[in-house]
Design a protein around this nucleic acid. Sequence first.
DNA 1: CCGCCTCCTTGAACGCGTTCAACTAGTGAC
DNA 2: GTCACTAGTTGAACGCGTTCAAGGAGGCGG
Lengths: 248, 248
Amino acid sequence: MRPVTTPAADPEKPEPDAAPPRSRAGAARRERGEQTRQLILETALRLFRERGYTETTMRAIAKEAGVAVGNAYYYFDSKEHLIQGFYDRNQVVHRAAVAPLLATERDFAARLRGALHAGIEANQPYHSFAATFFKSAAEPTSPLSPFSSASSPAREAAIAIFRDVVEGSDAKVDPELRAALPELLWLSWMGVILFWVYDSSPDQRRTKRLIDGAVPLVDRLVSLSRLRVLRPALRQVLALIKDVQRDD
Amino acid sequence: MRPVTTPAADPEKPEPDAAPPRSRAGAARRERGEQTRQLILETALRLFRERGYTETTMRAIAKEAGVAVGNAYYYFDSKEHLIQGFYDRNQVVHRAAVAPLLATERDFAARLRGALHAGIEANQPYHSFAATFFKSAAEPTSPLSPFSSASSPAREAAIAIFRDVVEGSDAKVDPELRAALPELLWLSWMGVILFWVYDSSPDQRRTKRLIDGAVPLVDRLVSLSRLRVLRPALRQVLALIKDVQRDD
DNA sequence: CCGCCTCCTTGAACGCGTTCAACTAGTGAC
DNA sequence: GTCACTAGTTGAACGCGTTCAAGGAGGCGG
């Protein structure tokens, strides 16, 4: 079985997994390898979509892609590593979905609400097996963990969305809080995702209610951050965060 | 699955985990079965402790217990189900560890802090492979999920600890908040556990700092709950919680 | 042209969790 | 006593993710 070449594969796509900086080997061979890599990844994601994650076997992916099962392991350390591609894709979808809103709307609450809803919507089609993905992501040692270094780029991209939410808004935010806010909002977003994964209500209505209910509270809280009376409390909270992040 | 035949003889779905209340079968046999069950569970937990979860195979458990591998599956639906026993055990340890403090101390912050630290301490010896357990627990469909119905007894027991923390304290708490507080504290406890699982600092110092830093804030927040100005905000928060819990 | 190095590919094999048809033996009904 | 019933037990077998020794095949120095 000869590997089938994909019609239009981007040869300069940066490799999301461990990309060994090969020195002076043949360029043509590398290109073919990259094609195989993309072929396997795309086939895997398609099958995940069609059948779900656990129901898709590595053998099925290999067969469908027309390669040997061992070949998939040449490009991806494990079945879980294939999920990273899924994350990257959804990240892009999320970003694109909020872009129009963030370009026009200036109200902080509206921006935040929009970002959260867009994020949920981007993931909606995959809710049924997002739980399985989540299971992998939950393991701290897993490269799929949102806190892992392997996920750093995706995490930074997600935080960037919330930075945009904050900085593009007309909200008056305490400057000390302003710096920490994007990451805090991202953390809240992780919480929403966690809730969403567990949410078995039809159309995940409860998650939407959670967002709609929590956003005004967050908005209020952020506004209050500038009150002089609350300064000490805010300082205390920020100090705690910094203290907890200290890595020793 | 269970042995074949007799769908009519035993109309009630037999509980896979907890001791099944079989109606009129032989008592001696049931007793022997219960012994086998305990033997398998204890052997499994011992091996988990000695070698870690993933490194312990079902075959090893069966061999060490002197039974066939299929026998373990007669009593436990899966390898993961064996973990529930671990949870129950730790629950008891946690409870016992806080009991002396809760019997004497009356200050809310001190009680809460004690409960959290005791909980972390009870889990400390298992931190290295708690991550693996956590991976299983994180899957919403898993019976090990802290939100699953299978975990209800353990969850209720855990919430009871925090109810004790609240009710045995001399803190003046808004009555509306008082009712919801134990569950909220339990939820925070889940957050602490989540943080702890991810905490790779030596001796999980960061988790301890998190507790020590967060408890005063919670204490302050609880005290403020009685202020008239904050009533509307409190109401809003409680309403959100209720709204989100609504299951439709 | 020839080796040779390296990237790429192969599929059998391994150990795992899990299943299942078959078997054993204690129990209750007659 | 006997016999049907069934909780309890067995271990081979299945399909899975993963590994690995072996084998191409393109490019480069000679």
